[in-house]
């Protein structure tokens, strides 16, 4: 019994002795020391000098408290030091992030400039190619028209002195306009070339071309459409004349125009045309207004679809376009002809 008691006393004494020894450093102090020795410590000290200095001060205080055997005070100081140390590290992280943000913003800005430049270059290139494509097609139309006019002249050889010369003159107008980039006017010129092979069409063709040119100068598409109609009618009369001797029907005349357009690479079948619109139909009241509306719509469509050409023809009641005032006398038809993408 006595021995047991002595052992218990000895254990208690040992325990008391252990309590009086140097205090164990708390976890918070270890963490603070690790933070103070981290690889970014120097950078954090530069970025957030005040917070870092506070962390160092608390670290010193914690060590002092530990040396004095006050583990609780050491923990308290370490906790405060840790917060300040983390604050400094967070400031460093934010500074680096801001650097990243600035770099990204700079790259973004440069790329936007690059995109603007490329977009502009691509647009210019597309325009160049589109003009080239149009140029080739119009040249083809001019050639086809010239061939058609020549064929007509051959059929009527000797009956219309000077007709061929007039046709060539109109072709020259077409070429000249083509050279000036007046694509639409060149189409008109080409069509007029066919029409103006007739001596009696000279005045109307000349007038129509002159007005079309003026409209182009003013970029007045609505007026241009009216001239297109006029020239188209002239073209029709030329075809009528050209096919008259061969006993061609009005439908044949339309086909003649379609043939020319097809030869130039336009859509081959009438059904493939973007639109075929009746413009007038026999003088009924209100018809002209409706016709004007349609012309205006066509003009607007042409603005949005630069790869389409609009031609108007006088179908005289017979044409291959179903549903367009069939059998009701004179009928003018506008064709919106899509230009093919490749020649």
């Amino acid at each position: 019994m006595r021995r047991e008691l002595s052992s218990a006393v000895a254990v208690a004494a040992l325990a008391a002795l252990a309590g009086c020894g140097p205090a164990q450093p708390p976890d918070s102090l270890r963490q603070l020391e690790a933070l103070a020795g981290a690889k970014d410590a120097e950078a954090a000290a530069e970025t957030a000098a005040t917070a870092w200095a506070e962390a160092q001060r608390y670290l010193a205080l914690a060590n002092e408290a530990l040396d004095a055997g006050d583990a609780a005070a050491a923990d308290r100081f370490s906790e405060l030091g840790l917060i300040q140390g983390k604050l400094a590290m967070t400031s460093l992280r934010e500074q680096r992030t801001r650097g990243r943000l600035e770099a990204a913003a700079e790259v973004e800005s440069q790329r936007k400039i690059e995109i603007e430049r490329l977009t502009s270059a691509v647009a210019a290139m597309e325009q160049l190619l589109a003009r080239d494509r149009m140029r080739r097609h119009v040249e083809a139309v001019v050639d086809a028209s010239r061939r058609r006019a020549a064929a007509a002249e051959e059929q009527r050889a000797g009956t219309r002195p000077g007709g061929e010369k007039l046709g060539e003159a109109r072709l020259e107008v077409g070429r000249e306009m083509l050279g000036r980039g007046r694509i639409e006017a060149a189409v008109l010129g080409a069509l007029a070339a066919a029409g103006a092979a007739l001596e009696e069409q000279k005045a109307s063709a000349d007038g129509a071309i002159a007005l079309a040119e003026q409209a182009l100068e003013r970029e007045d598409l609505a007026v241009l459409q009216e001239r297109v109609e006029e020239v188209g009618a002239g073209a029709h009369r030329a075809f009528a004349w050209a096919f008259e001797g061969a006993g061609a029907t009005p439908a044949d005349r339309i086909s003649g125009l379609v043939e020319i357009l097809s030869a130039a690479g336009f859509s081959a079948a009438p059904d493939d045309y973007g639109a075929a619109v009746s413009l007038s139909g026999g003088g009924k009241r209100g018809k002209q207004a409706a016709c004007d509306d349609r012309l205006a719509a066509l003009a607007a469509a042409l603005k949005d679809a630069p790869r389409h050409a609009v031609v108007a023809i006088d179908a005289r009641g017979a044409h291959p376009f179903p549903g367009l005032d069939e059998g009701k006398g004179k009928c003018q038809v506008a064709l919106v002809v899509p230009l093919p993408v490749s020649p």
Partner: peptide
Amino acid sequence: PEKTEATL
């Protein structure tokens, strides 16, 4: 137009 041209 060249790719590098700023305005065309």
